[in-house]
Design a protein around this nucleic acid. Structure first.
Lengths: 253, 253
DNA sequence: GGTCTATGGTGGACTAGACCAGTACGGTCC
DNA sequence: GGACCGTACTGGTCTAGTCCACCATAGACC
C-alpha cells in the first residue's frame, strides 16, 4: 500500500556553490516534480528525514523548503502521517500575484496596448494626501491611459504617484518601457502588496466615449493602493473596466 | 538618533509549559506591541541576537516568529541593517482572510440577516461536476438565501456543496447556526483558500425582484470556489450583490 | 577635505542534534 | 472476535552553534 519506493527522480545532488540557496533549490525541485506530475495530487512525499538524507542536508533546511511550499498551498501536512501534495488543479493559474495590466492581458492570451489620455502634475486632494501619508497639496503625477486588449478598448487606468518618489516621470516615454519596470529600475519603487476596492457602476459620459459603451452598460470600478515591503504607499490607481469584456479573479486565504 | 534603549516591555519571560508554542508566544508579543503602538511603524526591532537573549530562546526560534510576521507583512527586514515594523496604517482592516457574509457585514458595522429562498438537491451539471472533481450527475445540495444588512436586501447567495460531503445538510436549521460553523464542526469541512471571480452585470428580473432594484442598476456577480488545505473543493458559491450598497475589498501580494 | 580599511554589528543560511504528540500497526491478552 | 499496549515512524518544535554577505562607523592615510 506504500507509495512508490526509491527512484524519486527529484532527489539528487544540489549545487552547493550556486548563488541560489540550498532550500530554494530543493523547493524548485519539488515544484518541478509537482507541475510535471511526477508528484501527483495527494501523493505522499518522502519523509523530512528521508529528504534530508537524500539531499545530504540538515532536516531544518528541508523544512525551510517544505514550509514555503505549504505556505503557498503546494503541499499540506498531517502531523503523524506525512506531507502531501495539495490538489491545485482548480486553483491553478489565477493571478494571486500583483500583476500589471500588460501581464494580466498577456496571461489571458490577448495583446495589450495603450493610448495616452492625459498626463500631468496635480496637487494632492486631502483624501489622496492621506492615502499617501503626505501633507495636503503635495505634488502628484497623474497618468491616465486607455488600455486596450487586441486593439479593443477594455479599461481606463489612471495612475497616481507622488512626484517626489518619481521625479521626471512625466517626461518619460511610457510607450517605450513599462511603467512598472521603470518605477523599479529607475526609482527603486518595488510594489509588494496592494489593496483593491471593487465596485459595479455605470459609466460616466466621458467613460462611455473612451470605452465605446452604452450608458446602460455596467463597468467595474477598481481602485488600487500599492505598497512596498515597508508599507510605504507607492501608487494609487483608479481603473474602469468594461463589464462585458472583463472579469477579475482573485485568491483569498 | 538610535531608537529606544532597553525597557522594551514586550520582552520578558515566556510560559514554557503553555500549550502555545514558544515562537507563537513571541509572535503574539510582537503583534501586540505593534498594534498597541509601542513599536511604531518603521521602528527598528532589537536584533535577533538581542531578542534571543531577552527571551532566553535560541535564535532560530526568534526567527520563526519574525519570519511569520514578515510573511504577513507586519515586519520587513533589511540585511545588514535590521528588522523594522512595516507601516500597515493603510492596509489595515480589509478582509485579506476568507470571511463569511455574517463576518463581512459585522465588520462593516451592520447587522446581517438572511431569508431562505430555496433549498434542494440537484444533479451536478457537467461544469459543476468538473469544478468539484466529481462524476457528472453527482448530487449537490444547493441553498439559496437572500442576504440582508440592517434589514435591507444586499445580496443573493447560492451555496453549492456536494451532498456526499455534508449528508443531511438540507434538514438543518440554518437560521439557528451559521453554515460555516456547521460545516466545520459537523462535517470537518474547513475552508482555507478560495478563488473568486468578480464581474459587473445587470440583474435578471428575478434578481431585480429579490434585491429590489431597477433593471438598469448594476450588480456585482461573484462566484467563489472554496477549498480546504488539501485542495479539495468543498463549496461553490454564486452571489449577486447590489452595486449601490456593496463594494469588495481584497488584498494582493 | 576625501578615500581607503579594519571592525563589529546585522539578517540569511545552514548544521546536527534533541524531545514531543500524534499515527499506524503488530502482537498480546482477555 | 475485541480491547489494550508497545514500537516505530511522522511532522512540529527547539537548541546552540557556524559561516557568509552586507552595512555603518571610526580611524588612518593622503
Amino acid at each position: 500500500m506504500a507509495a512508490s519506493v526509491a527512484g524519486e527522480s527529484f532527489i539528487g545532488p544540489l549545487d552547493r556553490d550556486s548563488p541560489t540557496s540550498i532550500f530554494a533549490q530543493i523547493r524548485a525541485r519539488l515544484e518541478e516534480a509537482i507541475s510535471s506530475g511526477e508528484l501527483a495530487p495527494h501523493a505522499r512525499l518522502p519523509s523530512e528525514r528521508q529528504l534530508s538524507a537524500g539531499f545530504s542536508v540538515s532536516r531544518m533546511t528541508v523544512r525551510q523548503a517544505l514550509d514555503g511550499l505549504t505556505q503557498d498551498r503546494f503541499l499540506y501536512s498531517l502531523p503523524g502521517k506525512g506531507t502531501f501534495v495539495a490538489d491545485r488543479r482548480v486553483i491553478e493559474q489565477p493571478l494571486r500575484h500583483l500583476t500589471s495590466f500588460t501581464q494580466d492581458i498577456n496571461s489571458r492570451g490577448m495583446r495589450p496596448s495603450s493610448r495616452l489620455v492625459e498626463s500631468r502634475t496635480i496637487q494632492a486632494s486631502f483624501e489622496m494626501a492621506r492615502l499617501f501619508g503626505l501633507g495636503p497639496g503635495a505634488e502628484i503625477t497623474q497618468i491616465t491611459r486607455l488600455r486596450l486588449a487586441d486593439d479593443e478598448p477594455l479599461a481606463i487606468e489612471s495612475v497616481h504617484i507622488p512626484s517626489a518618489l518619481a521625479p521626471g516621470l512625466l517626461h518619460r516615454d511610457l510607450a517605450a518601457e513599462s511603467l512598472y519596470s521603470l518605477l523599479a529600475n529607475d526609482f527603486g519603487l518595488v510594489p509588494t502588496s496592494a489593496r483593491q476596492t471593487i465596485e459595479a457602476a455605470l459609466p460616466t459620459s466621458e467613460e462611455q466615449r473612451l470605452l465605446d459603451v452604452e450608458s446602460s452598460a455596467p463597468v467595474l470600478r477598481i481602485s488600487r493602493l500599492t505598497s512596498d515591503a515597508s508599507g510605504r504607499v507607492v501608487e494609487y490607481v483608479r481603473s474602469v473596466y468594461r463589464g462585458d469584456r472583463y472579469h477579475l479573479t482573485v485568491e483569498l486565504r
